[in-house]
Amino acid sequence: MEAMIQPLGLALDGLLALTLLWLAWRVLASADLFKSIVFFIAFGLVMALIWVRLGAPDVALAEAAIGAGLTGALFLAALSRLRQGEEGMANGTHLRRANGLRFGAQAALIGLLIALFLALGFALLSLQNEAPGLSREVADMLPASGVSNPVTAVLLNFRAYDTLLEMGVLLLAVIAAWSLSAAPKEAVDAPGPVLGGFVRLLLPPMILVSSYLLWVGAYAPGGAFQAGAVLAAAAVLLLLSGRSPRASGWLGWPLRVILSLGLAVFIAIGLALTFAGRLFLDYPPDEAGNIILVIEVVATVSIGATLAALFAGGRPQQDKRE
């Protein structure tokens, strides 16, 4: 039986790897940006499958939700704005290759990449150790971490500082996007009955799925980033269906508070622990589970809001009633 399954698995892996390479090539080679984006989304989904094959379901979930889903949506939004900007110009969204690299430079670049690829392959094959990793250390300390999913234990306890700084990256991304320009005024098309009804049907289960992913992260694949991505997808659907919260007072300081809450609460907990005579982010073992849950809940909300704000693409324009 084993002997039967192994070649089959190998064939599947080979097929996935080849598909991934082909999709990557198509993303880069398509002259039409829209096609590139579609291939990019497909690339993300195949990548997620590969993560599953590698036994990393947490990464697979994140890749599918953020890598394929939200990044794809961001690209599409950017493309539609490019088209608006270049209306009237011929071949607006086709890549202009006039000022591309000359043949010699291209050949040199390809040669360099092949050399790099071969060197990497050689280096990987020469690895002596069977990739020891830290799984044993993580397993040993798991009971003291407050959760039973080792990935969550690493992300929110053992290496919580990384996650804290990554929340900083997210906030920084929003601030950077907002500093560039104001969000474009959306054309207020009626979304049509299909999209409207669809959104109304889909929204409650999406919020439910998000909460489930958040809760289950403590003992199974899931957690704040995946839950936040689903929440963001719900928000993107709302924006697409024309139900943006433009007129309401939500876009002023309340939105800013929601965006920075995840980072702020994380830091506040870390600093509070130092005032209590412990080290930064050094949770008392009995409370670790609860502390992680609090951090994950606020992080989910902030991540969802951040990704949705990036999709909206600029700082909100306040209605000033001029």
Binding site: E137, M141, Y161, R278, L279, Y283
Partner: peptide
Amino acid sequence: RYLIGGWDAPLGI
């Protein structure tokens, strides 16, 4: 040297 979260290397940062 400061152990963030009280975890020494290689587990912690």
